[in-house]
Design a protein around this nucleic acid. Structure first.
Length: 927
DNA sequence: CCACTCACG
DNA sequence: GACGTACGTGAGTGGC
């Protein structure tokens, strides 16, 4: 038997090492694994699985032509004769492992592989001997083991393969571990000893020192002979005193390469396993998933047995799971893989209203299943009868342990949604990994992070669109009405693609240095937001309706007045018609046409100017617009968003929408509830606490300016924040040279605008427009600002330069914000990119800080026993809570502490963070 | 479906 | 010298 290229390749598996690895891996993975008769089989399973994987995974280059599994025998070996203490402090094998030793040898036989052991020798000696024999014949050798002792026999043509870590070590890789090449590993080990095996070595010398000494003196004998030359007293005396002990150690660690082994290596020729004995063995051990794997790989010609039908469906790319036995196979596969892609199909997009329709799973790329549980549930007119499907309660009960098991990683795309759906079924989905969030941590600003887009970018696959299965527009049907074969193709593909995306994105996290961002700011936030969304906030519908009526009256009155003034009827809500009235009919000055459509601009800025010139109609239009905005967007829209089951509104936070790390809120957007005008602010009175409860609003004071002070290292700003002085007044006094005491509010207002302008990447034009002053004057202010705080300009220049070089800028917590516009040729677009680059680290760091606080708050509340305090909303620099009346005295200090210390320990901000808290029965009062 | 406008931080 | 500008969002409306 020889490989096509003529070189034989011998694999020597360190069976004993793998028994312990398999035992411990299984022991820590959750529940102990036993057969129905109570025999523990965790290690047998782990071992068998490892062999399966090894036989399946090796690609053609590394394909073994010969293979043997080598075991230790009893503990007594020639080494214990030399040194009785050798391996004497090893604890005895765990009780539940002992009955598994013979089973593992049976497993090896079932695979049709040679199982080798020899009285008086350790597996390592046999491995060393066989490896040398194979090398003498010019064969390649791979030793499958995680035991570093075997590194001493590595050379050209012999490598060490740790399948648990999927890491291969070649002879030149030994130096990383031992500081010397394979030929001196024994010398180093003789000096350093090994506490696990009770190899004494020389006291006070570890691997580092040993390697240094061997490199200096050449080998152990030379070193021991010349030990008296060593300068360090302690080391010298140690080496002299314990020279003999080092020599004994060498005998213990040196592998015997000349054991009189019984089998010639030609006996180890590898043939594919016979499926029958393997299946029989797996059946006897009740390893269903392994049996399935064997059937899939080698079982084509086997006669069908009762399970093989299930297996056949499973062997298809995408299968529809409609019986329990099949579902259990998938659950087994999940446990044994440790990773499973999960996706849910529901009746709608709103997780607090949608019901579960089906679940899809994938463990191997290209293979996935769909488990329908709610098809035909919605009226069912389109389906003549309910399709054959498992009962939802049974599926949930069967999946729950796996979906909650800490040893099985659940992989999904936007899992926050699925977590919310599962939470309503009593399942706490954990632990999770989210491909959308990985993409966001890696590529924010480069493209969107929806599954279809990621699939196109990374996999070059266009998934079946939802429209294709559910139709579009008026003809769109609910997913629960989609026929099972169509639903399966669509849903299973989603799980499949998610798993494939995971395989692409996960390794990039480490290589592109965003693991910390993902692990601290993204992944742990999903469950927190899921809980907030499910909590919702109560809105008082009568209050909104009263306001709506108030606004309606105003709108109607203004509409009439405006049309009368215009002299002809027109739609006041139409910017186009309004523009024609203002700038054509009335012939007013100061009209501007938009660049894109050439339509008249009629925004507030324009209307304000016209109003300032004494025109009444534009002023009335402004009022009209305010009322209609408040009515249509808030009072009327919000009442339709109240969930009928909970009586509350449940927003949805988008975790991967912005380029800076901020969240966004939609359906409804609760991050833009009016506050700036008196009329608008009234809407906040409708956001209320449940009877007996209050709302608590906690907001960061001036967080972005504080971050700016830190990042740009502005001493004057930092000092002002440390002292707690009015920061806008301070700016005014610096820029305009006026005393803080008795300052004109107008001056302070201007300084405030400058401060904000700086954060946004100021331009004279923008500041002039904001303040309604001349551009020259604005430019002058900016110049004065830069002179007073020179760090600002340095920060801006540095940031833009970094952004142009790397294509992204970073927050203080390492979040990358890609700014593609920085490389634009068009100066206007590039300027846009430059301002975005200046702003992103500031806005993004603030976003990171509140994310950190949000991740910590639920645990902090729980630890403090404040389980009745619920976090409801996030509005960029503010968190809103609901809590029982009287609990605020406990809650406020805790929430303040967590929020104000959210940077620690990752970052020591050089300005204090300050959080202001307010409470009330509604959001307006709390603010 | 896009453009415009405007609500928030 | 001309670009025509503050940073980040989501939602409702009109009009093609």
């Amino acid at each position: 038997m020889s490989a096509e290229n003529g070189t034989n390749h011998l694999y020597l598996i360190d069976g004993s090492g793998y028994i312990f690895r398999a035992y411990h891996a299984m022991a820590y993975s959750g529940k102990p694994m036993t057969r129905a008769d109570g025999t523990p089989v965790g290690a047998v399973f782990g071992f068998s699985n490892m062999l399966m994987k090894l036989l399946q995974d090796l690609d053609d280059n590394d394909k073994p032509t010969h293979l043997a599994v080598i075991f230790d025998t009893a503990r007594k070996t020639f080494r214990s004769d030399i040194y009785p203490a050798y391996k004497a402090n090893r604890p005895p094998a765990p009780e539940d492992l002992i009955p598994q030793f013979p089973l593992i040898r049976e497993a090896v036989k079932a695979f049709g592989l040679p199982s080798i052991e020899m009285q008086g020798f350790e597996a390592d000696d046999l491995i060393a001997t066989y490896a040398c024999r194979a090398r003498e014949k010019g064969w390649q050798v791979t030793i499958v083991s995680s035991d570093k002792d075997l590194m001493q026999i590595l050379e050209d043509g012999i490598d060490l393969f740790d399948t648990m870590k999927n890491k291969r070590t070649y002879s030149d890789g030994v130096i990383e571990k031992f500081g010397v090449g394979p030929e001196h590993v024994v010398d180093v080990q003789s000096l350093a000893g090994d506490s696990v095996d009770n190899v004494p070595g020389v006291p006070g010398i570890g691997i580092k020192t040993a390697a240094q000494l061997i490199n200096e003196y050449g080998d152990l004998d030379t070193l021991l002979e010349r030990a008296h030359e060593i300068k360090q007293n302690k080391r010298r005396e140690s080496l002299i005193e314990f020279a003999e002990q080092a020599r004994i150690s060498r005998q213990l660690v040196t592998l015997d390469r000349n054991v009189a082994v019984e089998h010639p290596i030609d006996d180890f020729a590898l043939t594919p396993p016979e499926p029958e004995p393997l299946i029989a063995f797996f059946e006897s051990q009740q390893f269903r998933s392994l049996k399935v794997k064997v059937l899939q790989k080698w079982g084509q010609d086997l006669p069908k047995d009762p399970l093989s039908e299930a297996v056949e469906t499973l062997a298809k790319e995408y299968s529809c799971v409609t019986d329990m036995a099949e579902l259990k196979v998938w659950i087994d596969l999940a446990y044994h893989s440790g990773e499973i892609a999960v996706d849910t199909e529901t009746t709608g997009l709103d997780p607090s209203a949608a019901d579960l329709v089906g679940i899809s799973l994938s463990v191997t790329p290209g293979k996935a299943c769909y488990i329908p549980v709610g098809h035909g549930a919605n009226g069912g007119d389109l389906l003549s009868e309910k399709p054959n499907q498992l009962a939802k309660a049974d599926v949930i009960a069967a999946l729950k342990p796996m979906l909650e098991d800490k040893s099985v990683l659940k992989i999904g795309q936007n899992l926050k949604y699925d977590m919310s759906i599962f939470a309503r079924e009593g399942i706490n989905l954990a632990p999770i990994d989210d491909t959308m969030l990985m993409s966001y941590a890696l590529d924010a600003g480069l493209h969107g992070h929806g599954m279809d887009e990621l699939s196109g970018i990374h996999l070059d696959i266009t998934p079946i669109s939802f429209k294709e299965v559910a139709g579009t527009g008026k003809n769109q049907i609910n997913f629960s009405e989609v026929a099972l074969d169509k639903a399966t193709n669509y849903a299973a593909e989603d799980a499949d693609i998610t798993l494939r995306l995971f395989k692409v994105l996960k390794p990039r996290l480490a290589t592109e240095r965003v693991t910390t961002v993902y692990e601290t700011l993204e992944r742990p936030l999903a469950p927190v937001l899921s809980a907030m969304e499910r909590e919702g906030i109560k809105v008082d519908v009568p209050t909104l309706q009263r306001l709506s009526n108030e606004f309606a009256v105003g709108i109607e009155r203004l509409d009439k007045e405006i049309q009368t003034m215009a002299g002809r009827p027109f739609n006041v809500a139409s910017p186009k018609q309004l523009g024609e009235i203002l700038f054509e009919d009335m012939g007013l000055e100061g009209g501007k046409k938009s660049a894109k459509t050439g339509a008249w601009t009629t925004n507030v800025d324009v209307l304000e100017k016209l109003a300032a010139d004494g025109h009444e109609l534009p002023a009335k239009v402004m009022e009209f617009r305010q009322f209609s905005k408040l009515k249509s967007t808030y009072t009327d829209a919000l009442v339709t968003q109240v969930n009928t089951k909970t009586g509350r509104v449940h927003t949805s936070y988008h975790m991967a929408a912005t380029t800076t790390g901020r969240l966004s809120s939609n359906d409804p957007n609760l991050q833009n509830i009016p506050i700036r005008t008196e009329e608008g602010r009234k809407i906040r009175r409708a956001f209320v606490a449940e009877t007996g409860n209050i709302l608590l609003a906690a907001d960061y004071s001036q967080i972005e300016l504080r971050i700016l002070a830190h990042i740009a290292d502005i001493a004057a700003l930092k000092k002002a924040f440390a002292a707690g002085t009015d920061i806008h007044a301070m700016t005014a006094s610096e820029v305009f040279g006026v005393p803080i005491e008795g300052m004109d509010p107008m001056i302070r207002r201007q300084a405030k605008a400058i401060n904000f302008g700086i954060i946004y990447g100021i331009s004279a034009f923008g500041l002039a427009r904001q303040l309604g002053i001349e551009r020259k004057k604005a430019a002058h202010y900016i110049e004065a600002y830069f002179e007073r705080f020179p760090g600002i300009r340095a920060y801006m220049d540095k940031t833009v330069e970094f952004g142009k070089e790397h294509g992204y800028v970073e927050t203080l917590f390492g979040r990358k914000c890609h700014v593609t516009a920085l490389s634009e040729k068009n100066p206007m677009k590039r300027g846009f990119g430059e301002r975005a680059a200046i702003n992103a680290p500031i806005q993004g760091t603030a976003a990171d800080i509140i994310r950190r606080a949000m991740v910590r708050i639920p645990g902090a509340l729980k630890d403090a026993g404040l389980t009745d305090v619920r976090m409801l909303l996030q509005v960029h620099d503010e968190l809103v809570f609901e809590l029982p009346e009287g609990r605020d005295a406990d809650a406020i200090p805790l929430i303040k502490t967590v929020m104000e210390n959210a940077c620690a320990p990752a970052l020591n901000l050089s300005v204090p963070l300050v959080v202001d808290c307010g409470t009330g029965h509604n959001w307006q009062e709390a603010h």
